[in-house]
């Protein structure tokens, strides 16, 4: 098979990552590896982070990132200044804040929600929220020489 380069949106990338996590659920259950929020320990943590690094970060890094400086999966930062991250596309809220992707969580179905950090215009985290994952769109926010770029599509 010949690999043909094609473009993929960051949203599709994140949906792929979400799909990977979901597809693992039966196998995780079979292997008695806890995956639900709160119950998941090192095993699932390692799996999720490995998928995130290899599906999301490696794609972004290989395509556009100058250095591997993307916010780590599920790690809460107090300040996103200078740290590349994935942001939920949408209008800022009444406090002029944006939502930054932290990780997928589970409400009704596996990984059907997203935990986000709500950060102000200066990149400082003000609160955390869990929102429904459906219909969310993402963009990759990266710092290049002090200025901020917003990437919505990368080439595979």
């Amino acid at each position: 098979m010949v690999d043909t380069p094609y473009d993929i949106t960051i949203t599709e990338l994140m949906n792929t990552f979400q799909g990977c996590l979901r597809s693992l659920v039966p196998w995780l259950e079979k292997m008695h590896i806890p995956w639900k929020d709160g119950l998941a320990y090192d095993d699932f943590e390692n799996i999720a982070e490995a998928l995130y690094n290899n599906i999301v970060c490696a794609t972004l890094e290989g395509e556009v990132a100058t250095d591997y400086n993307i916010a780590r999966y599920d790690l809460q930062y107090s300040d996103y200044t200078g740290i590349d991250h994935l942001r939920i596309i949408g209008e800022p809220d009444q406090h002029n804040c944006h939502s930054i992707f932290l990780g997928f969580t589970t409400d009704q179905l596996p990984f059907d929600t997203v935990k986000v950090a709500v950060a102000d215009n200066d990149g400082r985290t003000v609160s955390y929220q869990v929102i429904a994952a459906d219909d969310l769109e993402y963009e990759y926010v990266r710092s290049v020489n002090g200025s901020v770029e917003y990437v919505t599509m990368v080439r595979l």
Binding site: D37, G38, L39, A40, Y41, D42, E45, R72, D74, L75, Q76
Partner: peptide, 10 residues
């Protein structure tokens, strides 16, 4: 405890 954050109830 989990790295990064823990569900404190669990």
């Amino acid at each position: 405890l989990r790295f990064k954050t823990t569900d404190i109830k669990v």
